[in-house]
Amino acid sequence: MTSPLQQKIKISGPSIVTANRTGDGVVIYRTGEKSWSARIADASVVRNADEARALLSEAVADDVGAIGAYIAPVDVIEGKIEPGNLREHIRSEGLTIPLLPVPA
């Protein structure tokens, strides 16, 4: 497998690093405090390839805590971080469909 760090890093706008938590698979975002958060609002936003590489490197180094870290686009609107594409919207906000009704 090619390490994500060996791939060419190219970003076209504000970006974050995201992954899934090893123990339960929950979507997580790399923060500026060298840790992870389940809230996209806590994500560290990078704006050029060097910053992105640095953030991804430290994320990938945490192989025990997180799986499959990668760079994802975001929009920063009035200081609020919004997912930059549909896939990331779904990862951040959940299914676009109702779950089957589960009786209480």
């Binding site: 123990g23 929950v26 192989d63 025990v64 799986i67």
Partner: peptide
């Protein structure tokens, strides 16, 4: 061994797949 860090994800991936475990968008 995976949760303790003895196995990397790269090593574990084939093993979990052999048992039907994928990683999807929101969870395993």
């Amino acid at each position: 061994r995976r949760l303790s860090g003895e196995l990397t994800e790269d090593e574990f991936k084939s093993l979990r797949l052999m048992n039907g475990v994928y990683l999807q968008l929101h969870a395993y």
